[in-house]
């Protein structure tokens, strides 16, 4: 894992995308996340907004942008559920911040690192959701650790294929 100085890597490899990509890709992720479970049934173990959040946070290498994007995606996800708004928001805010912070320091072009990061951040997001719901808010919420694990694995696999596709959207200078 190649470690660089934070400032050097950020200045060297900040990725830029068209404005439309910032709007349409998260929207597409939200729409597909809402629509695909109808096709996949009970095996919809994926979180596309999380994958997109991780991608943009890693690519932009800006913790503030990652935080904001994670918060927006999480809040929109919460708004589509019947749960309290903010649970996923907190989880994805933390994930966006961490992904951007890590992206400053490591080489995120490597597929193994992408796979591992997506897996770990997905698991972290699920843990934060459970922590906030069950311990912070004290709600009666049952959860299944296996489902979280499957979701993290599927998210990592999706990231492995989706990140190269999204890389094509970036603006080359």
């Amino acid at each position: 894992m190649a470690l660089l100085g934070a400032g050097a890597r950020r200045d060297m490899e900040i990725r830029r995308y068209p404005i439309l990509a910032y709007a349409l890709v998260p929207l597409a992720a939200l729409v597909l996340q809402a629509w695909l479970p109808r096709v996949a049934g009970r095996y919809a173990w994926f979180d596309l907004p999380l994958v997109v959040t991780v991608y943009f946070a890693l690519g932009r290498r800006s913790p503030i942008q990652g935080t904001l994007m994670g918060a927006a995606m999480g809040l929109f996800e919460d708004a589509l559920t019947h749960h309290a708004i903010g649970v996923n928001g907190i989880a994805k805010t933390a994930v966006g911040f961490l992904a951007a912070s890590v992206g400053i320091r490591i080489d995120v072009e490597n597929h193994t690192i992408r796979l591992l990061l997506s897996f770990l951040l997905s698991l972290l997001s699920s843990v934060i959701v459970v922590f906030v719901s069950h311990f912070l808010l004290g709600l009666d919420l049952e959860w299944n650790w296996y489902t979280m694990l499957y979701t993290a694995i599927v998210n990592a696999v999706i990231a492995l294929f989706l990140f190269p596709l999204l890389d094509r959207l970036q603006v080359r200078e």
Binding site: P63, L68, A71
Partner: peptide
Amino acid sequence: VLLSILLAQIIGLATQVHRTGEGRNT
């Protein structure tokens, strides 16, 4: 920025949850 956004969301969550007579949050 991270802390302020997290704090805002936690406050927002707190307004959506209330405690029942049985001592449970809902």
